[in-house]
């Protein structure tokens, strides 16, 4: 117990770092996915091509590779070095935005074409149709795959340890090496589990909120 109390402050520091990376990634990637999705379905070929390439590259290469690349590239190319935290946020946000864009696209595609027709027949503009009719319905559809990604992100933050970010995994690893005990692993596992538990609770709540307009019974 004394040992746990002794290492707890350090693990808490790592947890804060992980939570910060997690939250900032979501805050940037969730909105960033939207323009990428619109771009990848837009009628201008060049824009569509660029957005599809973006998605292809970020989904097609390991996040680990992307982290190394963005950590070392600015230094080698321009002689500027960014800290581990900004680099991690930058890389995670770009990577997750690509996944989110594809989730959004799937969600938009799942909307019945009749919804667009009804909106048109009522004289709604494209903008009003997209933001008033389509996106609110898409939200409900994308919620389950989004919460899946969010939970994956919690665990992916551990990858940032490779670019020397002092997040939970790196600090835990240090303690294990130093003290030759597995206890820090167990505590870290508990912390990750606690986070996924909280996120699962939140996404269940949100899904429940959106289910209020589900059909009921036999209709």
């Amino acid at each position: 117990m004394a040992y746990i109390a002794q290492i707890m402050p350090l693990l808490m520091k790592g947890t804060m770092m992980m939570a910060g990376l997690f939250a900032l990634t979501l805050v940037i990637a969730i909105p960033l996915g939207l323009p990428i999705m619109f771009g990848s379905t837009c009628k201008f070929k060049v824009v569509r091509f660029l957005c599809k390439c973006y998605i292809w590259i970020f989904r097609g290469t390991p996040l680990l590779l992307q982290l190394f690349f963005f950590y070392y590239f600015p230094g080698i190319a321009f002689g500027i070095r960014f800290g581990a935290f900004p680099t991690a946020v930058f890389t995670f946000a770009l990577n997750y935005a690509a996944y989110f864009a594809e989730i959004y696209r799937g969600g938009m595609n799942s909307i019945d074409p009749g919804q667009y027709e009804a909106a048109h027949s009522l004289g709604l503009s494209k903008h009003q149709t997209t933001y008033g009719i389509i996106i609110p319905q898409t939200l409900k559809v994308v919620l389950p795959p989004m919460s899946n990604e969010v939970i994956t992100l919690i665990k992916d933050t551990a990858l940032a340890s490779v670019i020397t970010l002092d997040e939970l995994m790196r600090l835990t690893q240090g303690l294990v090496s130093r003290d030759v005990t597995l206890t820090p692993y167990l505590i870290a596992a508990g912390i990750y589990l606690l986070f996924t538990f909280i996120m699962t609770m939140i996404s269940d709540r949100v899904e429940k909120h959106f289910s209020k307009y589900d059909s009921q019974g036999e209709w």
């Binding site: 009749g114 027709e117 009804a118 004289g123």
Partner: peptide
């Protein structure tokens, strides 16, 4: 769009907006 507003349409498969209440469906446009 302005001219199309002069028509109202009822579809075979209703095409109501599922995320709005009945009154919301009617009042939105």
């Amino acid at each position: 769009l302005e001219i199309c507003c002069e028509t109202g349409m009822v579809f075979q498969h209703f095409n109501l907006f599922p995320h709005m209440t009945c009154l919301g469906n009617i009042c939105y446009a």
